[in-house]
Design a protein around this nucleic acid. Structure first.
Lengths: 146, 146
DNA sequence: GGATATTAGTTGTTTTTGTAACTAACAAGG
DNA sequence: CCTTGTTAGTTACAAAAACAACTAATATCC
């Protein structure tokens, strides 16, 4: 329709990244959505607590770059589901330490299993060298240290 | 906190992909948002029309994997801004062919320029071989043919 | 040709997100 | 102490997305 320049939409990285992210999310979503009625932010919070152990909402936010209002709501839902407990920090009574309950731990482990399987399935399409490069590049793009 | 298995959240591909996608989107967003008051779906539609030429809403939807209601609303906004025209297909009066107006074309070219620059900037952090692998893998993950 | 099913696109309603303003606790400086 | 500023987290309201139900045109098949 015009002088095509050297621009091709299907090579534009933000576009490609979003398409790939949406596609892969869709695949994994059904695990936490159907089985536990969770939202994306909820499983992220759950995974952070399961993976790194007890921490505060603020900490999760800065690690995962999620806005505090989203975390607040996710934590409320997870607490409602009895997946996390909140305990006030006695030396700074604004903060509260979040931790998984046994039920939360169980859900985490179950989902982690599926995540691992899902990840393995994705990687199977590529060589291990390619996957290593992909992870390295995505971490860089996401602003996560090595 | 527990037997860590061999699972690391920060290596989980759907997570990494989403973080990277969000980060890169944020960077490009300001161009179409601040300068043209567009939403993500709007620039995607604009880009499709600019890049591939006239087509129907249905076609954009299947190419970009965007739901028809999102497209419908994006097209309405773009038409409001006088960036696209809609012309009924005479042989199938349900469908309409969307095309850029000169103003739409101008906006597209302007944004394409910024997109290209933004993309180049991202790629500069990596070797060209790495970038080629990344694009290839993302296309695959996004379900876009080679 | 006429009932039935499909398809292109729109509209309405409910969820989810984004943004801003808020409360409560702490921190500093005077 | 007691103003002023900052921080952790929540709440309220506006914008956007998801999902379902709709209209109108066309296809199908008896």
């Amino acid at each position: 329709m015009d002088e095509k320049d050297d621009f091709a939409l299907q090579d534009f990285l933000p576009y490609l990244l979003n398409r790939a992210a949406e596609e892969s999310s869709l695949g994994f979503q059904k695990h936490y959505k159907n089985r536990y009625g969770m939202l994306r932010t909820e499983w992220r919070v759950l995974f952070h607590l399961g993976n790194y152990g007890q921490m505060t909402a603020k900490e999760i936010g800065s690690r995962a770059k999620i806005h505090k209002t989203k975390i607040s709501r996710a934590v409320a839902k997870l607490a409602e589901k009895r997946f996390v407990t909140r305990t006030r920090d006695e030396s700074d009574r604004r903060a509260e330490h979040l931790a998984l309950t046994p039920a939360g731990e169980a859900a985490y482990k179950d989902l982690r299993e599926h995540a691992l399987e899902f990840d393995t399935q994705i990687c199977a399409r590529f060589t291990s060298g390619e996957v290593a490069i992909l992870r390295y590049m995505l971490r860089n793009l996401a602003g996560i240290e090595p």
